[in-house]
């Protein structure tokens, strides 16, 4: 009986099996990389803003506290964006003629809002509350990174659910003393886990992994 397939078909079948597996692997790796990378998460991507506002300058050089502008961070789910009035507290006199501040002055003159681009834009099926985090010992820098060293604002964390859960499952890895929350340069102690467990008990940190904690 004659062979149905040519001998070379053996090679083709091997190559196609191995190649198929590799191809699927490549597709999965590529999808994962794109999903986790800054293409999708916007990590480390600087967004265009009406004014190239430098947190580094205002926080590091001028020593202004986060709460001077983000007034409601301790009392509300929303940290608060400064009204034009807040910018003008200083810029009525300092850099009062600088070109880059013209949008601020225009907003002050006309009463129209400055249209900032949101950098940390959570999906809207997630409930997030700033006040509970800062009042339970989670530092600004734990999520936002060293904003005091950023000339232009960008995200340092994906804000993906697995990232949230990393802390919600083990808050002792990140919790710090309440009086250190706004200290951008805080360094955790060497025995953070042990120390963190003490703080978790002291601050009554609990119920962190129920679905409805964030999806409500």
């Amino acid at each position: 009986m004659a062979q149905i397939f040519h001998r070379g078909t053996n090679t083709i079948s091997r190559v196609s099996i191995i190649g198929g597996v590799l191809l699927i692997g490549c597709i999965i790796t590529a999808a994962y990389t794109i999903d986790r990378g800054s293409f999708n998460s916007d990590v480390a991507v600087v967004k265009e803003q009406p004014v190239p506002f430098s947190h580094k300058h205002h926080v590091s050089d001028d020593g202004i506290d986060c709460r001077y502008c983000h007034t409601s961070v301790e009392t509300s789910h929303f940290a608060g964006l400064p009204a034009t009035e807040v910018c003008m507290s200083c810029h009525s006199q300092i850099w009062a003629n600088a070109n880059i501040l013209e949008p601020v002055r225009a907003s002050w003159r006309t009463g129209e809002s400055l249209a900032w681009t949101r950098v940390h834009d959570l999906p809207e099926f997630v409930y997030f509350n700033h006040s509970i985090h800062v009042n339970k010992g989670i530092g600004c820098a734990s999520c936002h990174g060293r904003v005091d060293q950023m000339p232009l604002m960008f995200k340092v964390n994906t804000l993906y659910m697995n990232w949230c859960l990393d802390c919600h499952r083990q808050p002792e890895k990140y919790v710090r003393p309440k009086e250190q929350v706004f200290n951008m340069a805080y360094q955790p102690p060497a025995n953070q886990l042990e120390f963190g467990k003490k703080l978790v008990a002291e601050y009554h940190i609990q119920k962190l992994t129920d679905c409805y904690t964030c999806h409500r």
Binding site: F78, R118, P123, E124
Partner: peptide
């Protein structure tokens, strides 16, 4: 569609 729902976040346009 679930990420951007027809609701306003604070200070949204």
């Amino acid at each position: 569609d679930m990420h951007n729902q027809p609701k306003y976040k604070p200070l949204a346009e």
